[in-house]
Design a protein around this nucleic acid. Structure first.
Lengths: 196, 196
DNA sequence: CCCATCTTGAACCGATCGGTTCAAGATGAG
DNA sequence: CTCATCTTGAACCGATCGGTTCAAGATGGG
């Protein structure tokens, strides 16, 4: 209404999310967030909440944004389960390859910090991992995988997806990351073929 | 020579390693290390070095200790490559199941902290990941896997091994962790069988 | 032009950070 | 017992942490 301009909250949240994503909760100070968002220290508290609240908002934002993409990638699972799994991993691989985004994964980093994070934050990160597993299991069941195999592969695919976050930060090349998922996709392909 | 007693440096290093392993570098203060080791703040600096130096020592200790175990597990790779790979993962699974040790993995946690850690520390962690890959590739080649497959599977196995660190902190059960590696071992078994 | 409204920068708070110093105390050798 | 040696706890340092407050300034509506 008055005063200079209303800053764009979405843009600020994106910047904060990327900062947390890159450096993690412990290594991100409120001054870092101020620099990253371009917002004043007081503005952050007045419109984005304190550090803990803001972190949870960023975590939700991250989980929703990429959760939707994972859902979209898996949407063809009933018809072509292998292609769905490949598209699933492509979401992660493209995210890692994007120079505008950090390596790693905000959820993976948060989960790794479980012992020192607040219980609510740790629970929310665990929830995101659980959701990923549910998503994958549903997709694999939709593709003609029997319950047992769907359960195993859902867990395996979720884990391999998280491994990409670790390996990308270890300097592993795009080709090597692709090799990691290709072994998994081959295994899935053979299991799918065997159940025909 | 004089004074009360010479404290046991190995015991202190173990305690410091576990503290770093549990909480990570950023979330471990020198006071935490003092409490964990039972050593006085000044004693830490005088006999274990500053925080950065001590962390590197703990990282080396961790890499050596479990590196040796991984080597031992893989030693039968030439005769029974599949059993070797299974024994390799068992090292990690048993470590995670040990209630006296933290979940996760010091190397994985350090690699995830790459963007905010000193260059030398980050490089040392990357080195540990690279060594793991080398170790696995050599073992798989010793087992009758051709170069290309050995390279792919070495990368894949190293990644899946790291994924256990993430998933264990996400509250994944022992059975589910086992399912993750079983998918990988099945894939390896089929590839080994195919090359016969 | 004036005023109400919003943003901003800067200061301040208590707490904790990594790192250093040093006197007091405990010990074993002589 | 005495003395040299080593460890210990505590204090101190400057810096930074998360969090809060507030006066100054910028803006647009009337």
């Amino acid at each position: 209404m008055a005063g200079k301009k209303q800053f764009d909250i979405d843009t600020a949240l994106d910047a904060a999310m990327i900062q947390f994503w890159r450096a993690g909760y412990a290594d991100t100070s409120v001054d870092d967030l101020s620099r990253a968002t371009g917002l004043n220290r007081s503005s952050i508290y007045s419109s984005l909440g304190d550090k803990d609240t803001l972190f949870v908002r960023c975590l939700e934002r991250y989980a929703t944004r990429y959760g939707d993409k994972y859902d979209a990638a898996l949407s063809c699972a009933a018809d072509r389960p292998l292609a769905a799994a490949r598209a699933f991993f492509d979401i992660t691989l493209e995210r890692i390859a994007d120079p505008a985004l950090p390596d790693g994964c905000l959820v993976a980093q948060t989960v790794m910090g479980t012992p020192v994070l607040s219980a609510s934050v740790a629970a929310r990160a665990r929830e995101a991992i659980g959701l990923q597993h549910t998503r994958l299991r549903a997709a694999l069941k939709a593709g003609r995988l029997h319950d047992e195999a769907a359960e195993s592969f859902a867990t395996h695919l979720a884990a391999v997806n998280q491994s990409l976050a670790v390996m990308s930060r270890a300097g592993t090349s795009t080709e090597q990351l692709r090799a990691i998922v290709d072994v998994t996709l081959d295994a899935l392909a053979r299991t799918l073929a065997a159940s025909d």
